[in-house]
Design a protein around this nucleic acid. Structure first.
Lengths: 213, 213
DNA sequence: CAAATAACGCACTATCTGGTTACTTCGTTA
DNA sequence: TAACGAAGTAACCAGATAGTGCGTTATTTG
């Protein structure tokens, strides 16, 4: 491991090079998918040599795997940082819906990476124990939130936190991942400011009605 | 156009060859995406010659475009055939949710094709006027259904049929398209019979609560 | 039945692509 | 400071890949 606190800038910097490759790969894989992505393009964009990619990641698929795993962990980490405990259950749930929507909106690569990974039947994520751990913590948090709501008499009982989480993600994810075909077939601009705001409010409403007593 | 009622089987059959290519292409594009799909594989699978693909469709992208457009029209056509008018509004809406879920489940290629098309920013669907027409008819149908529900006093007013339709599709689509990563991170088999049934019921509940007065 | 038309297929190519070989340069430390 | 390992690079390769040129054969039609 490199010394993060090294004061003098190094000309040779393994960490930095690795990070540049990862950033470039994330972009290229997100834009073109695994099959469409080009290793040469990634090397160029990273201002690195193609040989370095194979040095650090072994293969194109190895690189893809790292990109996908990192993206997943980033997402769940950001979620974890939300601190919903001190909010009342309804407010906490609304904040969660807003957060997930905002994350998808600000990180469009996340969505296309997840799509790519599912096209390949999640074979790159299978190994990752880290992803499971992060997710368990998240589901527990959602279960706790639902319990609090039931105690407070504002949520109904018997809601599966996993189903609820899937639905919260779904109503944002689907709208955004299919914004191109959606804008054509429904003949409206899915990414217009008003349209985005309208969708978010509709989604908050959907979720609150779903859990209401 | 070929004569469908031709009594004697033809060795040379343009229609049939075209259809075989289209079917093989649908499968290959759905499995590997546009970038990952191989023209040679499509030709093989179609028991046709690669030359025929270029004869009928001009290019790999031209073939992809036809596949995507056909898939879209198939979906909306099936939807149109539902005949919801004679059902009471709640039953009709539930039938719609069940239909869309069932369609996604039985036609997994549809989902991956739509994902691919959105990865490419819907550039292949842009030209298709047919798709828009089919969709308009569908949205009108949904609007009519909502109106009927309001008249009958079972649905609330002010629901945008487009938002509702997006949500109905979303809660099924997301679950199914992300079933591979979902099964890993949530540590349950998304495609188990029980899990599928549970998800469908959860979704019907979600939609009925969303429109309830 | 002859000629035209359209379906079909072989064999080829220019280019691309993931991956590698062989080498140089830098930074650290014994 | 010598020497050793790690970072970095350019040139290269074999196989793959989208796309074609051109000839052949079946079907239709005047």
């Amino acid at each position: 491991m490199a010394d993060d606190s090294a004061p003098k800038p190094r000309i040779r910097d393994a960490e930095a090079t690795r990070a540049r490759i990862l950033a470039a790969a994330k972009k290229e894989f997100a834009t073109s998918g695994l099959g469409g992505a080009r290793v040469d393009v990634i090397a160029d964009q990273a201002k690195a040599n193609k040989r370095m990619i194979y040095h650090y990641f072994g293969s194109k698929e190895g690189l893809f795997q790292t990109v996908v795993e990192d993206a997943y962990i980033d997402f769940r980490s950001a979620e974890q940082a939300l601190q919903l405990d001190h909010l009342d259950p309804k407010a906490a749930l609304e904040k969660m819906v807003r957060f997930i929507w905002g994350y998808f909106l600000k990180n469009p690569e996340f969505i296309t990476l997840v799509n790519s990974e599912n096209l390949h039947r999640a074979k790159h994520l299978k190994a990752s124990e880290a992803v499971k751990i992060y997710n368990r913590r998240y589901v527990d948090g959602m279960a706790g939130l639902l319990d609090r709501g039931v105690q407070a008499g504002v949520f109904r009982t018997g809601i599966d936190p996993v189903q609820l989480n899937i639905t919260i993600a779904a109503i944002g994810y689907y709208y955004l991942t299919n914004r191109f075909t959606g804008s054509i077939v429904f003949e409206r601009d899915f990414m217009a400011k008003d349209a985005l705001e309208e969708r978010l409010l509709f989604n908050i409403d959907t979720v609150l009605r779903l859990v209401a007593t």
